[in-house]
Design a protein around this nucleic acid. Structure first.
Length: 270
DNA sequence: CGCTGACCCTGACGGC
DNA sequence: TGCCGTCAGGGTCAGC
């Protein structure tokens, strides 16, 4: 479900209800996530006050004085605010009971997400080697160009590599490559600097627009405030295999690149 | 070091 | 109606 815009939408929805609130209790109903929820996590969080809700790539960081709760939503996870009396249903694995009338509820059918602890002053290993944020000034064409020289893997894999740049998942990789006119299967090392300039702009544009729209709703994504995202209506290629290209009318094609579906226009993307 | 594919898990959907 | 194969927005890891 969540790529960077969905995680950012969740962050914005939750932050006002979390910041300044104290954690009464962490209720773990099922600890079997991507990595097991640390048994000591409830004790570490109990009684702590959430100071900020930040995002790094697709990770959410709920910071308290002794450390931060590190949350990843995986493929199917969601975090939403619920009233205390709302009964837990299927796949509601974790509740973060806050002071006041709300709890944060984590639901994740596939359990690819994680709840981990990062002590203040330490950097969790999962965050150690991440590339720049795509909406920051550090994300430049020069960086992509330099990092891609000699790389033979498809450019689509390259921009989806979190060590290169964080937050670009399958949907937005497809969309950005279409906007930039670059074929997803082209070797990263054979993309010119000027085309990386276009790609950087395209990635920024598509992510910013998706955040603006509250994310992309596919299946049942809802942001922290329970509202759906509307970006799906603006998708140019993702999910449109065999439909006409919105730019030239040719039928969009699909290929699998490292197991992920890639949709592109053979006329507009080279 | 770079690259590919297997794997983690549940649910939805299409074909028979 | 049910069964089976395929696919899904994430990421790590082993093996070449």
């Amino acid at each position: 479900m969540p790529e960077l815009p969905e995680v950012e939408t969740t962050r914005r929805g939750l932050a006002p209800y979390c910041c300044g609130h104290t954690i009464r209790q962490l209720v773990v109903r099922d600890s079997r996530l991507r990595w097991p929820v640390p048994p000591e996590l409830p004790d570490l969080l109990q009684g702590q006050t959430i100071e900020t809700v930040a995002r790094r790539g697709k990770y959410l960081l709920l910071s308290t004085p002794p450390g931060a709760l590190l949350v990843h939503l995986g493929m199917s996870g969601s975090l939403r605010l619920v009233e205390k009396n709302e009964p837990a249903t299927r796949h509601d694995h974790i509740d973060l009971d806050l002071t006041g009338s709300y709890s944060l509820r984590y639901n994740d059918p596939r359990r690819f997400g994680c709840f981990l602890w990062q002590p203040t002053g330490d950097q969790h290993p999962l965050l150690a080697r991440l590339g720049p944020e795509p909406l920051s000034d550090e994300f430049t064409a020069a960086l992509l160009f330099r990092a891609s020289r000699g790389r033979t893997a498809p450019v689509k894999n390259f921009i989806m590599d979190a060590k290169v740049v964080v937050g670009v998942g399958n949907i937005y990789a497809n969309e950005a490559l279409f906007l930039a006119g670059i074929h997803p299967g082209r070797s990263a090392g054979r993309v010119s600097l000027s085309r990386y300039e276009r790609l950087v702009l395209a990635i920024r544009q598509v992510l910013a627009a998706a955040i603006e729209q509250g994310g992309t709703t596919l299946r049942d994504f809802v942001g922290g405030d329970g509202k759906p995202g509307y970006f799906a209506q603006q998708l140019q290629v993702y999910g449109r295999t065999a439909l006409p290209c919105k730019r030239c009318g040719a039928a969009l094609r699909e290929m699998r690149i490292s197991g992920r579906s890639s949709v592109y226009c053979v006329a507009c993307q080279r």
